[in-house]
């Protein structure tokens, strides 16, 4: 019995890190992604080029490698080492997910018919008004399924933090294997399953809420 409570305390403690990484990444990457989208859709060529290259690099390299780069590069190149490993994890995750989100947003924005913009324009709305009052809501409805997919991936990616020594749940569970206990490691799957289950229900609910109109 003592063993069980010891293991669960350790796993819950580790899963706290997963949750922190998840929520912080989500809160920061969702708006940052929109900024990158505006960059990659910009008519100002240099900005567009920089944004597209950025997205290419981030999507074209493993998140695991990006974690190492964020942890070591500032110290090696600029001589300002990152003090907290958690900070490095958050920076890498936010950048990585913002790049993916930005491409989902871009797809959503480009799928809105031109007529919506034109209707707003002839009614005398400014470009920001057209975007925020007419287009954005329709984009949100269209990107929700893809975002749900990506956000569920994020839950599981949080376990990558262990690669630079953040004691998230899998790292905690692995310690027990050295004591000959394998079941704690396997049982971490339940935490992820439960979390993703809740998210699946939540996204299902949101999709249903937005289903009041078609188009």
């Amino acid at each position: 019995m003592d063993r069980l409570s010891e293991v669960s305390a350790s796993l819950v403690g580790g899963f706290e890190y997963n949750c922190i990484i998840f929520f912080c990444t989500l809160v920061m990457a969702v708006p940052l992604g929109l900024v990158i989208t505006f960059g990659s859709m910009s008519r100002f060529k240099p900005l567009k080029w920089v944004s597209k290259t950025f997205v290419w690099i981030i999507r074209g390299t493993p998140l695991m490698l990006q974690l190492f780069v964020v942890l070591y590069a500032p110290g090696l190149i600029f001589d300002i080492p990152i003090k907290s490993r958690m900070t490095a994890v958050l920076i890498a995750f936010v950048i990585n997910y913002a790049a993916y989100f930005s491409e989902i947003y871009r797809g959503g924005i480009e799928s809105i018919p031109k007529g919506q913009y034109e209707a707003g324009q002839v009614l005398g709305l400014t470009k920001p008004q057209v975007f925020f009052k007419v287009v954005l809501f329709q984009v949100i409805k269209r990107v929700i399924p893809a975002m749900g997919n990506e956000i569920i991936t994020l839950v599981k990616d949080t376990s990558l933090a262990r690669i630079i020594g953040v004691t998230e749940i899998i790292m905690c569970a692995e310690r027990f294997t050295k004591q000959g206990l394998i079941w704690p490691l396997f049982s971490t799957g339940l935490f992820f399953l439960a979390f993703c289950g809740i998210l699946t229900l939540l996204f299902g609910y949101i999709e249903k809420k937005l289903d009041y109109y078609k188009g």
Partner: peptide, 10 residues
């Protein structure tokens, strides 16, 4: 007034 209405669906 557009041929394809272009009402705001939401």
């Amino acid at each position: 007034v557009f041929q394809s209405f272009n009402l705001f669906p939401q």
